[in-house]
Amino acid sequence: MLKNLYLFSILLILGLTACAQCSVKPLQIQSQQPLPALAVEYETVISFDDTDQAQQVYLWRFYRAANRLETHNLHDNSGEIWTRSVYGSISYQRVFHTQQVIIDYLPGDLKAIGAKIDWLALSTLLDSDMIESLRSDTQAEFLGRPATHYKNSDPNKTIEIVWLEQEQLPALIRRTEQGHTIVSRIKTIHALHQSPWALPDSADYSVTDFADLGDKENDAVIRQILPKLKAGHSHAR
């Protein structure tokens, strides 16, 4: 979904330290800018109550700079890029590295398809709908970094988050609902300028405007990627 680029959830199982003196408080995302520039690799695991369904595992990377956010899904070699102009307008690109194709969504396209754009939510991988019911219950440590564990109280739709306050990112998230559990966790985190992975180079890819997709439905590559696009096109899902 455009709202949240691969929206991904994370588990908490690593040594949380109970803190009887900790006050229960909501998770509050800091609004000051810029947030720390980071390169992060996540693992997402989807498990099902139905044991006949195989567990699904995905690796993906998140790159955050002041006015540019990029994800790279290593499973299917695709990604998303969000950019913010000096005037505050936000553009979006869906990137298919194997096909070397970019689908370009201008700010007007995002508005036309009803995409809810929140730069802070995109930058922190969390939005207000996800965190409004969360309350802290323990202090934690994750990869040597201080963190706080938050959870909600809805037994039908449980959410747990381990939040890195300094980095302003979830280290772990666990969501359980409707017979499945989605767990994502940081495997490794680096300052962006010290990233061990080069940003995917898409400078020479073919670019198609989202508004022009209807004129290119007979193109073999466009037909291949259409099912992976989100919202706003008659053949997208």
Results as ranks from 00 to 15, higher is better:
T138K: 09
I90S: 06
T138N: 13
I29C: 04
D76H: 06
F210Q: 03
W60R: 07
Y58P: 00
R185T: 12
W197T: 03
S206L: 03
D127F: 08
I10N: 13
R94P: 01
P200H: 05
S202K: 07
S206M: 05
W197V: 07
L38I: 10
D129N: 12
P227R: 07
R185W: 01
H235S: 14
Y150I: 03
L169E: 01
V162W: 00
S128I: 00
S153V: 05
A198Y: 03
F48V: 09
T188R: 13
L35K: 11
Q28K: 11
I173D: 02
A231N: 14
Q99S: 10
A203N: 09
W163P: 00
A236Q: 05
N77G: 06
H72T: 03
G144Y: 02
R64F: 07
S133K: 11
I81C: 08
T158E: 07
T51I: 11
N156I: 00
K228H: 13
R84C: 04
S128P: 00
N156R: 02
T208F: 15
D204S: 14
P34M: 11
P227G: 07
T176A: 14
R223E: 14
I131Y: 01
K151A: 03
L192P: 01
L14S: 14
N73T: 11
S89Y: 05
T51M: 06
W82I: 09
Q168W: 01
S85L: 04
L7I: 07
P36W: 02
Y42I: 04
I182R: 04
W60K: 05
P155M: 03
V24N: 15
Q100G: 01
K116E: 14
V40M: 08
L5W: 04
L35Y: 01
A20C: 09
W82N: 12
E70D: 13
T148Y: 00
L59Y: 09
T148L: 04
F62S: 06
F210S: 06
S206T: 13
G88Q: 03
D204Q: 12
L11T: 08
Q55R: 15
Q99V: 02
L106C: 03
G79F: 08
D104E: 13
F96Q: 07
E160P: 00
P36V: 02
G179D: 02
L7E: 09
V86R: 08
L74N: 01
T124G: 02
L120H: 10
A65S: 12
D104A: 09
D49W: 05
E217L: 15
S206R: 09
L226W: 05
G79A: 14
Q100S: 13
M130C: 01
C22E: 12
R145I: 09
S136N: 02
L2R: 03
Y6S: 11
L164C: 02
D118A: 08
V95F: 02
Y6V: 08
T83K: 10
L110T: 02
S202I: 08
L38F: 05
P34Y: 10
A198F: 02
F210Y: 13
K216E: 14
F62L: 11
E141V: 10
F48A: 06
T176Q: 12
P170A: 05
I90G: 05
H193E: 09
L143V: 07
Q194I: 00
R145N: 10
V57K: 15
F210L: 04
V45T: 15
H149Q: 06
R237N: 12
K228A: 12
N4A: 12
I182W: 00
